[in-house]
Write a protein that binds this DNA or RNA. Sequence first.
RNA 1: GCCCCCAUCGUCUAGAGGCCCAGGAUGCAGGAUUCUCAGUCCUGAGACAGGGGUUCAAAUCCCCUUGGGGGUACCA
Length: 523
Amino acid sequence: MTVRTRFAPSPTGYMHLGGMRTALFNWLWAKKNNGQFILRIDDTDQQRNLDEALAPILHAFKWLGLHWDEGPEVGGPLGPYFQSQRGELYREAGERLIANGKAYKDFDSPDAIKADREAAEKEKRNYLNVRRSLELTADQIAKHESDDLPYVVRLLVPRDRTVAIEDAIRGHVEWNCGLIPDPVIQRNDGSALYNFATVVDDAALQITDVIRGEEHLTNTAIQVLIYDALGLDLPRFAHIPYVAAPASKEKLSKRKLDKYEKHRAFRKLFEQAERLISQLGRSKDDRLNPVLVSFYEEVGYLPAGLLNSLVRLGWSLDDKTEYFSLDDMVRQFSLDRIIKSPAGFDPDKLLDYQSHWINELTIEARTELCLPYLLEAKLIKSSDTDSRAFVGRLIVALGDRLKVASDILDHSDFFTADSALPFDEKAFKKRVLKVGAPELLAKFRARLEATESFDAGSLDKLMHDFVETEGIGIGDIIHAVRVAATGKGNGPGMFDCLELLGQSACLKRIDRALAKASAAMES
RNA sequence: GCCCCCAUCGUCUAGAGGCCCAGGAUGCAGGAUUCUCAGUCCUGAGACAGGGGUUCAAAUCCCCUUGGGGGUACCA
């Protein structure tokens, strides 16, 4: 039988990291088995602007390259793939269960149920439905119905048995049905509840493997009873642990950001977002929430980096392999190597995967990633051949300093006008305002002006000759040159920086630094 | 309260009775390289939640405790 897995998001308007990890495991398992991955939209509570709420979710899948075989936009033979359009199926299944005596119409008011529950609690007794509606005669039921007395449909739980599954991750899990109250499967208006709709849909969509978060493990008891009542075969279940927040075993949550902000590793993510906000003049929006997939796309992470990080949350191949491309994952993924305990999302580890994968990229590919940020920041005017070439050279010089695409914004000094270059005050003071430094800088400037060749190699030689004739160490001059030319105390190799800037820019910038230095000396 | 699940370095994990005074990765600290930063290389600190069993032998199996999580809805 072909393996068919599914991911069933509610159209919430965003894609959570934890949900994405669940989706990834489903996708991988399907692909690994040459099966199909289905996207079903659980839009039971009739949203008004469905498209708007769904778009970011579909976009996240597309961005990561996790394409679905059936679902929204692509359709498929077993559609529709929206629960809101499958009401007829649930109604039909509900009627069948009532006809079979596997479910019943419960005319008890919510208040009556509540009273039963409270009474049980008071007596420290486990609550079970009193099932008064089961005592009703056919005539009484007909009367209630003609009176339009509201009712819900409840599954009649067989209290004398147990229900068990062989979970692919947890192994044998068993429940005593004598402890399970009869769950509502259909509301008064005929709409289906989650546990019911899910079973009907998973069966209709021929899902063979249900891989989902462990928060659904308890639901599974009820769902298995529904499968049984409907005479359906059980899929294989795999309940994976949730993705936890840093420094806790709590579920990673979209709403607990201020807590994560205090976490050392997480703070790096917030800083990346702040860089976008300050350098691109963006406003703070929901997409820049590091619990959401959109954050990583916005900041310039690679799908490969995020994917690698997600797959390693709760899954490993062996005791040493850390880096997995999507193809590697498809080849090597397996359910039996998923761990049972929750895994905390670690931004440090993500950054390591990210820098691994970005360094696998060609310079051209990295350039393409960085250009949009430079354009948005107005550091370059267009992405023409010249800009591409220049950015490419910068990226070569940056080497593995460039970890996420928006890191390019940290190197605006290569793009700003010479007359507007900001100097890092601390570095300036330390390197340029040092005794004797301006004099050396001025002398070296003269050499820079006189030289014919301005490539890194020649500049290196030029500097060494200079150092030798002056009888100083290279450290006595190179830092001052760096600060004068780039405004900063650190960065790529100094000679690469000078070459990138070019002769005239370097001279202008050094002049500006010298002027600033003499002004500072006087005061 | 009741039911279910989980428990190895800060973090991600390897480990399915002897290979483990517990291995890798990341992070951290120190050193080397170097013009800074990043990287690279080397070194270091760092864990089997606790208690009972079973066994010649337990991180691994069983029980209890503790801790964490989930469910207990006319949410999904």
